[in-house]
Design a protein around this nucleic acid. Structure first.
Length: 489
RNA sequence: GGUCUGAUGGCCGAGUGGCUAGGCACAGCUCUGCAAAAGCUGCUACAGCGGUUCGAGUCCGCUUCAGACCUCCA
């Protein structure tokens, strides 16, 4: 496949760069996945869909992508880094469950949501708890290189030592000295030498359930270590793209860079790609802010802020209609707009097989291919791609209404291009006809209402026509004293 | 306080110097028994103030406002 060059915005350089894989046609892609201690919400959908789009598009260019997206089931501390309980452990206590039971439950919930959103499964989905050995090894390596120190059974990354040789803060644009001058001094209780040092290994408090043996103590790995360890394990010391939400840039990704560089002497990821946040009333949607809407609530409409339910594909379309590096503001009006737009697009796609060929074409459709591609090549500009697709939608409708004509060959080309970009790249499924259970109930309410009116008017011809017609259609009508029931046979 | 983003028409949201983004909503028309769909037409905005330029939403400076990160977070 003759691939046109893809340009990606690299957070490291803060510019758009042409994407050149280390070892084409192979591409290594690592994306920070969810911490499984809560239901997936609208915010989780953003990176999942953003990197699904990237994964799909890279694949369409002929690259063989290994997409690794982790599951964080251990390691994040609740409040203060040094005092807090492991987040998953805390939730487990509250619910009287095993930690792994909680992790498993929410992992399944996440998978369900991803399936609904038509997000492809990654090549590998490693769990932090399954890679303790790798994390211990990495900690050992960093210690050996002199960029970490042990303190009371815990191991901390020595940011100051690292910053002397490399640059701590290169991703987020921070300078260590500035950060230090802006921080209050430690209260003296910490094992850390420096407030910006972060844990590679934490000694477990007695009540801490999730713990593993290590050379330093029984404990658990630090917050940032898992991604470094697992990306190295599955993609190598150097790989192509590291993705995640912008909120992870600091400290999480910064620390990942420091860990990898400290251990191996060079950067691990070459392109850092960050998706922006979904906001609600202009504020970031987040668990800690308590203003998030779960995906389940979006699908059911069961949330004070929701005027109606929204389908998974509406949500996907809503997200794709904004560029991944822009904030995207939630509102009912915006979702409803997305719902209509999605319907318009899918209706036109459904119309494609019905187009009748003509001897000549009144429009040159050869440009669509390059325009679709150009939009995606430009840093995954899905909004522009969608705008281009709507241009094709108009053409499809015009041809259907005999306002324009296309040859058989052009119809085939148009069909191929449009359906490819809509279903394979944007990953939009046609869900317009699938939500039939609710629809059938509403239709039956209506039909039986008409029949009851007829019965009231003693219009037996009409009422019997309806009942017999329904029987033939496989629906049994059951008249009762207090109303009418029906069931599918 | 530090670092970094952003401010586009009723709503959402593209656009890094010159030619109408697109969707939704709204209005009129065509089609039509009515409606819907579809088509056609209209709605032409870029926070404010300076500057650079033949020309700026687009570059530079300042102001105002908003947001993210600096603590777990997608």
């Amino acid at each position: 496949m003759a691939a046109t060059p893809l340009v990606l915005y690299n957070t490291l350089s803060r510019t758009k760069e042409q994407f050149v894989p280390l070892k084409a046609p192979f591409v290594g892609l690592y994306v920070c996945g969810p911490t499984v201690y809560g239901d997936p919400h609208l915010g989780h959908a953003r990176p999942a869909i953003t990197f699904d789009l990237l994964y799909r598009y890279l694949g369409s260019k002929g690259y063989r992508v290994r997409y690794v997206r982790n599951i964080t089931d251990v390691g994040h501390l609740e409040n203060d880094a040094d005092e807090g309980e492991d987040k998953i452990t805390k939730k487990a206590r509250l619910e009287q469950l095993e930690p792994m039971e909680v992790a498993h439950h929410y992992t399944e919930r996440y998978h369900d949501a991803m399936r609904e959103l038509n997000v492809l499964t990654p090549s590998i989905e490693p769990r932090a708890s399954g890679h303790i050995i790798e994390q211990i090894e990495l900690t050992r390596e960093i210690l050996k290189k002199g960029f970490a120190y042990e303190s009371n059974g815990s191991v901390y990354f020595d940011v100051e030592a690292y910053d002397k040789k490399y640059h701590y803060g290169k991703l987020s644009g921070r300078v260590l000295e500035d950060m230090l001058s802006n921080t209050r001094t430690l209260d003296g209780q910490s094992d850390k030498r420096n407030p910006f040092d972060f844990a590679l290994w934490k000694k477990a408090a007695p009540e801490h359930i999730m713990r593993w043996p290590s050379p330093w103590s029984e404990g658990f790995p630090g917050w940032h270590l898992e991604c470094s360890a697992m990306s190295t394990r599955y993609l190598g010391e150097q790989f192509d793209i590291h993705g995640g939400g912008m909120d992870l840039m600091f400290p999480h990704h910064e620390c990942e860079i420091a860990q990898s560089t400290a251990a191996s002497g060079h950067d691990a990821a070459r392109y850092w790609v960050h998706n922006n946040m979904i906001t609600i009333n202009g504020q970031k949607m987040g668990k800690s802010l308590g203003n998030f809407i779960t995906l389940e609530q979006l699908l059911s409409g069961d949330h004070p802020l929701l005027e109606q339910p929204y389908s998974a594909m509406t949500i996907r379309f809503f997200i794709l209609q904004a560029h991944y590096r822009s904030t995207l503001d939630f509102s009912n009006e915006a979702l409803q707009g997305a719902e209509k737009g999605y319907e318009r697009l899918m209706k036109a796609v459904a119309l494609l097989p019905k187009l009748k060929p003509a001897n000549t074409s009144t429009t040159d459709i050869s440009a669509y291919r390059t325009r679709f591609q150009a939009a995606m090549d430009d840093d995954l500009n899905s909004p522009v791609l969608i705008a281009e697709l709507f241009d094709a939608v108009k053409l499809i409708n015009q041809v259907y209404d005999n306002h324009q004509t296309l040859t058989q060959k052009d119809i085939e080309e148009l069909t191929q291009q449009v359906t490819f970009y809509v279903t394979e790249i944007l990953g939009l499924r046609n869900d317009l006809q699938t939500d039939n259970h609710q629809t059938l109930t509403k239709v039956m309410d209506l039909v039986l209402d008409i029949r009851n009116t007829a019965k009231t008017n003693k219009d037996w011809t009409t009422s019997d026509q309806i009942r017999d017609g329904l029987t033939k259609a496989g629906i049994q009508v059951k008249d009762r004293k207090d109303g009418t029931d029906w069931e599918l046979e």
